[in-house]
Amino acid sequence: MPLRKLLPGQTCQVWTVGPGCTEPFKRFETSRILLESPNWLSSGDALVLNGEGRLWRLSLTEAAQLDEIAVTGVPDLNNDHVLDPDGEHIWLSAYDRQLYRAPVRGGAAELITRDPSPDGILHFLHGVHPRGDRLAFTGLRETPEGGRTPGDVYTMSAKGGDYRRLTSGPGASDGCEYSPDGEWIYFNTELFDGHAQIARIRPDGSGLEQLTFDDRGNWFPHLSPDGRWAAYLAFPPGTPGHPSNVWVEVKIVTPDDWTSACTAARVFGGQGTLNTAGWAPDSSAFAYVAYPTDSA
């Protein structure tokens, strides 16, 4: 699969916004590289994003600076990466559909999915347990016809192996992320009405609960570290999957009432805007990416 690039006349903008749908703040803009999926470093002074198959650090100082994080021993990276709770490492997904762990400052990556996965699962990472001992990921399989099966939610040991499948269709499930207390996995799924709704499930596969009920395609739920807020991405009704270059809404909600979400921003984006958790460590804001064009 080719790496994503900016379209002619398109720019990449990195924004942050606070809970309660405060005024968004543009942190960085470039027409050189397509950046995706910001993670907020535990130090609070920078974001980590992917772009051109590599990992990048974006400082959040007044003179924002973008620097490559040199990670070795890993193929081109995709936009599914999550910080380790230890603050010193980052979990990575790559275009070989395997999972890796690397120092967040740069260095050699370790292959985690070194043991054969059940039935040739393709891994798309989305969450790490607060203890750091288990990973939550979307698992797909290639079909004999050259396509892919719908995704399902899995967990596995952070050391590799011990796979547990939590969903099994109908339709796709994706964007699985642990709650700050580790008691739930939040994700988006087509299990209920055939289009993406936000849901949660216990890590043992029990307690499945639907949380959103509207006609939009709701993706990628991310709870703030203090558990008081959640952010997610809403695609227009009828949108299949989570495509790029469409108008989407960045939503903020309190997890005790998912029907009262407010729109923090309406941006041209989708894929790459909010795929993984981008909350600040103190829950004061979260980061997202927009990709405006000359005509949008």
Rank of each mutant, 00 (worst) to 15 (best):
P180N: 07
D181I: 06
D181A: 09
D181C: 14
D181E: 09
E183S: 09
E183D: 13
E183K: 10
W184T: 02
W184N: 03
I185S: 05
I185L: 14
I185H: 00
Y186L: 04
F187C: 04
F187D: 01
N188Y: 03
N188F: 08
T189K: 15
T189Q: 15
E190I: 06
L191P: 00
L191C: 02
F192G: 00
D193T: 12
G194T: 11
H195P: 07
H195E: 15
Q197Y: 00
Q197K: 11
I198A: 05
I198V: 15
A199V: 11
R200M: 13
R200N: 13
I201P: 00
R202C: 09
D204A: 08
G205E: 03
G205I: 01
S206D: 15
S206M: 14
G207W: 07
G207F: 04
L208M: 14
L208G: 06
L208H: 12
E209I: 11
E209S: 12
Q210M: 09
L211Y: 05
T212F: 00
F213R: 14
D214R: 10
D214Q: 11
D215K: 09
R216T: 02
G217K: 00
N218C: 04
N218V: 04
W219T: 00
W219K: 04
W219Q: 07
F220N: 07
F220D: 08
P221W: 12
P221I: 10
H222L: 03
L223E: 03
S224L: 08
